[in-house]
Design a protein around this nucleic acid. Structure first.
Length: 893
RNA sequence: GGGCGCUUAGCUCAGUUGGUUCAGAGCACCUCGUUUACACCGAGGGGGUCGGGAGUUCGAAUCUCUCAGCGCCCA
């Protein structure tokens, strides 16, 4: 059968993926005879489509899981998706708006019905796309963070943490959209690139009991009535004398303190900052530090309220008031300056209205105590971060851990199980169900006549991370009735077969940007509920960027469509393309050329297969001459396998791939196959063929995790296989101690071959013309081992010893032995002399440097013996070489 | 403002406790070649005072200090 010279991935990839699925190779069940190797996928958003970050991330997971599977572990890769409350809700709202439906016109249940429909339709897209990539997930276990049991788990955890006293309600500055009348997340606030033009006003505040004024700078004069302090930098010589005095708020003459705070920048504005804790996040922080009063002068609809104390502003919109107060300040001669100013203005993604920072009551988890074990676990390498540099970052975050605001003003997500029964701030209960809530409410209020209708459940849902932080536990149903003890608030060991077997998981592969949002919190939840870590290793990938270092994003349109890439280069090509340039923790500058390189690699392997597959066998040949090649490749294979294992050990996937790449391309294709390859049209001996096919199998095995499709295809083509014999479940090879000596001998042989090829190249001699090689050295027998191969690959007539230098020849020196390639008539003597002189000069300089080192007493005394010995050998070789070169020169002149 | 990290060949990056193989890899580039698995290929080749400076040391890409540039996270 004549095979195409080009490998066609499209013809094989779907076929093998389907076969693996049909045979159930991806599925895992607890197997006490095997060690479990578990990975939980970082669940992609249901809103998303596959992007390059997923490609990288999931390729790495697949490499790890496939290797583990071949190593005979019970490999289980749990896939799933994340409900992504903010992103999904935004999508659904947008979709509805396009249909002319306002979210506000729908009830919560109606909206959720639309959201679920949307999720059913689009939520699985990414997982389907991952199949194209070859991801060997256990699809039977696909989880969703809003599945019924998952939803219940999240609620149980909320109730549990509340009972344990970790959850409380507190004030927080949120982004308020005055038009949509809702809070929005930071992600929904957009800032125009390059900022927006605004004005900076300088306003005089009188110092109490004096004629002095202090001038502050503000962009929001309409908030002046909410001021409760003026802050200056304590290092500011212009203003520090004011600290401790009082100032008067214009028009209303409220007395406010002048305080010192480092936050104030010396060279920004006037150096004096008016502090309005109710209307600015930074001011709020300052207020917290100095115990300032909070005066909230702006209502939810963006108009000023009576707390501003100026009747004709009350009920007017914030921007109307801004204009008026500027006018009023001017008239009162309190406005010192008004100038244009470029600033970042946050606008609502949905309504484009300017976001109003507003304080509101939110739910928090107190993090200090609950995160203690998670902190030390990473510091003590119980959970190991790769690369280790992230340990610092993690430490810093954990040392300064802030309480976690877990409520979100959205509908899509797990609804907060808090039920209010009165108007008081404390008139609520937290419970798993309305029934339980009613019972508790009756007890707490002392009012036995309360009914379910009197209870009002909190409108907000939980932060998505407050569900995904349970992922490694929840996918194995760790919070089911029988597994979770609500009394102790712990998962019971021995009660859940799956969790006991698969948890803790082995490795988590994710992006460093969610180290805190997700990874740290999973570790926290893991220790809180099981006393055990959720995973042993955390591999942090880089961010995929384009060639200009920009993050790949849909809005920039700089991301290629992964499925197009797969179509073009094959999944194997794209996988290797991603891995070629992705050392752990470093950003990956994606370039399609990398996929091209991956595709070329596929093709190289394919053609190696074509060669081997096309050989005829002659049973009468003994092939003894090839034995040296076979021994050599076996040694190189073992060396490479050791390297590969070492790289995997350190999660250097990119380096592991590179080792395999070089083994296949350089050692197997360029050297081994060239050595054993019979002359054109001639048959091969059975022994060499068998050895070659075995080697081919061996390299396919270590290639499989990286390039699963082509490796399985060729594995099946190499030999007839029985029913259960698939590469995906073949046994991972174990490294034998490599035969180092033969590798060293081969190195010299290959060096000789290269030198001869060089001579051909520089003398314009055709590769078809046979040459002779004469060797002048102490021990000719040492060239016997690879003699045949040298003759073959350098296309020589003969290799013979010589006692004398050969005139009219090209020559070279390797380790003190002289090699001559006689070239009657074609020698340019003058050029030769020139070259020799050059080399002589260089070698003398080299010798001088070595001599200097060796004559330095302190070096000889202090350096390790090994190093000194090395230098001595260098000296010896250099001296020998100089001697030969000088002799040659003398002979020529 | 606080913290973390980076700077090695044209590009992307390795380089462990300072010392064989320390100045490397892949890609790109240049020359030659359609030879019989593969031009998605083969055979060769050029290219870096390891960001600048100073110090410690017999010895520094590696340790210390300093200057410059860049990136990320938190506020």
């Amino acid at each position: 059968m004549a095979l195409s010279t080009k490998y066609d991935p499209r013809a094989v990839e779907d076929k093998w993926y389907r076969t693996w699925m049909d045979k159930g190779f991806f599925h895992s069940e607890p197997n006490p005879d095997k060690e479990a190797y578990t990975i939980v996928i970082p669940p992609p958003n249901v809103t998303g489509v596959l992007h390059m970050g997923h490609m990288l991330n999931n390729t790495i997971q697949d490499v790890l899981i496939r290797k583990a599977r071949m190593e005979g572990k019970e490999a289980c890769w749990v896939p799933g998706t994340d409900h992504a409350s903010i992103a999904t809700e935004a999508k659904v709202v947008k979709m509805l708006r396009e249909k002319g439906i306002q979210k506000g016109s729908l009830s919560r249940d109606e909206f959720l019905k639309h959201a679920w429909e949307w999720k059913e339709k689009y939520g699985g897209i990414i997982l389907e796309q991952l199949k194209k990539l070859g991801a060997s997930c256990d699809w039977d276990r696909t989880a969703f963070t809003m599945d019924d049991n998952y939803y219940e788990a999240v609620i149980k955890v909320f109730v549990d943490l509340y009972k344990k006293g970790y959850i409380y309600r507190g004030l927080r500055m949120v982004n308020w959209d005055v038009e949509a009348q809702t809070t929005i997340s930071n992600e929904e606030v957009i800032y125009k690139e390059g900022g927006e033009m605004s004005k900076m006003y300088s306003v005089k505040y009188q110092i109490k009991d004096s004629d002095e004024y202090v001038v502050i700078a503000t962009q929001r004069p309409e908030t002046i009535m909410g001021d409760t302090a003026i802050a200056v930098n304590p290092k500011d010589d212009r203003h520090k004398h004011l600290i401790g005095k009082k100032a008067l708020v214009p028009f209303i003459n409220r007395e406010i303190p002048i305080i010192g705070d480092d936050y104030v920048e010396l060279d920004f504005g006037t150096g004096c900052l008016k502090v309005t804790p109710a209307h600015d996040p930074n001011d709020y922080e300052i207020g917290q530090r100095h115990n300032l009063e909070i005066i909230d002068t702006i209502d939810f609809d963006g108009t000023l309220n009576e707390k501003c104390e100026i009747p004709h502003y009350v009920g007017e919109d914030r921007f109307v008031v801004r204009k008026r107060i500027v006018k009023d300040l001017k008239e009162a001669e309190l406005l010192v300056e008004e100038k244009d100013f470029n600033t970042r203005i946050g606008r609502s993604e949905r309504t484009n209205s300017v976001v109003e920072p507003k304080l509101s009551l939110q739910w928090f988890i107190n993090m200090k105590e609950i995160s203690r074990k998670a902190h030390s676990a990473v510091m003590e390498d119980e959970v190991v971060l790769h690369p280790a540099k992230f340990k610092n970052t993690y430490n810093h975050w954990m040392e300064n851990v802030r309480d976690w605001c877990i409520s979100r003003q959205l509908w899509w997500g797990q609804r907060i199980p808090a039920y209010y029964f009165g108007e008081g701030e404390d008139d609520y209960v937290v419970a798993n169900s309305t029934e339980e809530a009613l019972a508790s409410a009756k007890e707490k209020s002392g009012n036995q006549s309360l009914t379910i209708d009197d209870l009002k459940q909190d409108e907000d849902v939980l932060d998505t991370w407050a569900s995904s932080w349970l992922f490694p536990l929840a996918v194995f149903n760790g919070f089911d009735k029988d597994s979770f003890d609500e009394e102790t608030g712990k998962i019971i060991e021995g009660a859940n077969k799956e969790l006991d077997y698969y948890y803790p998981t082995a490795t988590l592969v994710t992006a460093p940007e969610i180290l805190f949002f997700w990874v740290a919190r999973m570790i926290i939840a893991g220790y809180e509920y099981t006393g055990k870590k959720p995973f042993k290793d955390v591999y942090l990938t880089g961010i995929v960027r384009d060639k200009q270092r920009r993050k790949m994003s849909k809005s920039l349109g700089n991301s290629p469509d992964p499925l197009d890439l797969i179509e073009q280069y094959g999944a194997d090509g794209v996988r290797t393309g991603m891995l070629f340039s992705s050392p752990a923790g470093n950003d990956l500058l994606f370039d399609e050329k990398l996929c091209e390189q991956g595709r070329n690699f596929s093709n190289k392997i394919w053609n190696a297969f074509r060669l081997v597959q096309g050989w005829d066998v002659d049973e009468n040949l003994d092939g003894a001459a090839n034995q040296v090649a076979i021994d050599w490749f076996k040694a190189r294979y073992n060396q490479t396998l050791l390297e590969v294992e070492a790289h995997f050990e350190k999660f250097r996937i990119s380096d592991a791939l590179m080792s395999v790449y070089k083994l296949i391309w350089d050692d197997f294709c360029s050297w081994y196959l060239e050595m054993v390859k019979p002359n054109y049209g001639e048959p091969i001996d059975p022994h060499s063929l068998e050895a070659t096919i075995n080697f081919f199998e061996d390299i396919l095995k270590i290639l499989h995790p990286f390039m699963p499709f082509i490796s399985e295809e060729l594995y099946q083509e190499l030999r007839k296989r029985d029913e259960k014999d698939y590469l995906i479940v073949a046994e991972w090879p174990t490294a034998n101690h490599p035969h180092e000596e033969i590798v060293d001998r081969a190195k010299i042989a290959f060096d000789i071959i290269s030198n001869v090829r060089n001579i051909r190249s520089s003398k314009q001699i055709s590769p078809k013309d046979k040459l002779e090689l004469k060797i002048k050295g102490d021990d000719f027998t040492k060239f016997k081992l690879f003699g045949f191969m040298i003759t073959k690959l350098a296309n020589l007539e003969s290799i013979e010893p010589t006692e004398e230098k050969i005139e009219a020849s090209a020559n070279f020196v390797i380790e003190g032995d002289e090699f001559f390639v006689p070239l009657a008539g074609s020698i340019d003597t003058e050029q030769e002399i020139e070259d020799i002189k050059k080399e002589l000069e260089y070698t003398k300089g080299f010798l001088k440097a070595v001599d200097k080192k060796l004559s330095n007493e302190r070096f000889v005394n202090n350096a390790p013996d090994k190093v000194v010995e090395m230098e001595k050998k260098k000296r010896q070789d250099a001296e020998a070489k100089i001697k030969i070169l000088e002799e040659s020169l003398a002979a020529m002149q």
